[in-house]
Nucleic acid binder design. Structure first.
Lengths: 195, 195
DNA sequence: ATAAACATACCGACTGGTCGGTATGTTTAT
DNA sequence: ATAAACATACCGACCAGTCGGTATGTTTAT
């Protein structure tokens, strides 16, 4: 049973880490930086986390879990309604994430090179894929979508979402991404909806 | 006027750099590593490039230029034909890029944090956007596509492409990305084509 | 000769991680 | 109650090694 002070310190480390990572990136953010930002000694840091990577991983787990939760609670009456509802949520996502989005990019990058991180990323990621595949299947079953390979359709949806988020990161003021997101979904629906 | 030997050395440095960057990433790839892989001394390295970042930038310019060129020569009779033709090219792109794709991710990441790199990335990137917008406009003009906001449509196409590439990086064996790319284009066409 | 091309030796800054020791609880024995 | 015994939390100096970049010398081509 950890002491009260302990959980507070952990939180401060995590909070400082996410800020530093977001600004400078994983590599450039030194443990000393993070400790300074957290107002915590290096000893405390390594008392709570075995390595710098462990902090990164903890951060990742937390976020991926939150996304998972958000997806689950977005369900509406019909499948098309659910999908449209999700695009309505996007602006909030963009606004809330803002400067943290580069970190997601970093997640991907690290995951593509580090076995341990890859496994931590890929599980929830595949879960999203499954979620959308199931959604498409439901849509087909309820007659609102044309019969199709739901796995592939889910991949398309996820690809589009990933691409939108990424471009939002790279070029936030290059377009009205909210509008684009809506238009994307519209085109997708045109292509997938029945009749 | 550079000597023959000089352009060869430059090429060897660039070639070694792309290999090291691809494997270990930009930060982890040390200049010494690159020099060793290129069979070139550190003096030679800094004789030809002022900084490590300059090498990175040169690499980027080269690739973005090549993509630009590839796009230009993909034009077919009608717009839908052109777009489909492009998905046919994708497998080659995936295969050829393979382990180099993480580098593109790194481009983005660095671009989102470094003003100089951002400017180098954003120009060709906007050029792609324009290319696709023009393509959509042509499609509307020739009557093969429904009237629509071509800028937004282009963003959707690019988003999808970006998302596909990114997922190909993260999870190369998680799906048949060639098939998904084709399906994406099919759905897009269903949504955008006239009648 | 001389200037470009290349090689070697080196510098100072910085990094992730360790370690001996201290301070702050918490449990146990009396 | 309280003091000894133990456990957890924390500190900050320190280390061994790495890095990007520079200074200086040598080779090569004209």
């Amino acid at each position: 049973m950890p002491q009260q002070r302990s959980v507070e310190t952990r939180a401060r480390i995590l909070d400082a880490a996410v800020r530093r990572f977001a600004i400078t990136g994983y590599d450039a953010a030194s443990v000393d930086d993070i400790c300074a930002a957290a107002g915590v000694s290096k000893g405390a840091f390594y008392h709570h986390y075995p390595t710098k990577q462990a902090v990164f991983l903890a951060l990742m787990q937390g976020w991926l879990g939150m996304i998972d939760l958000g997806l689950g609670s977005a369900r509406k009456d019909t499948v098309p309604e659910t999908l449209v509802h999700m695009t309505n949520l996007l602006p909030g996502v963009f606004a809330a994430a803002e400067d943290r989005l580069p970190m997601f990019l970093e997640f991907w990058l690290q995951a593509s090179r580090d076995e341990k991180i890859w496994k931590a990323v890929i599980a929830p990621y595949r879960h999203y894929q499954e979620y959308f595949a199931k959604l498409v299947d439901d849509g087909i079953a309820e007659g609102s979508l044309k019969p199709a390979d739901s796995q592939v359709a889910a991949q398309v949806i996820v690809s589009l979402a990933v691409g939108l988020v990424l471009q939002g990161v790279l070029d936030p003021h290059g377009a009205d991404w909210e509008k684009t997101a809506r238009a994307s979904m519209q085109i997708l629906m045109n292509g997938m909806a029945k009749s």
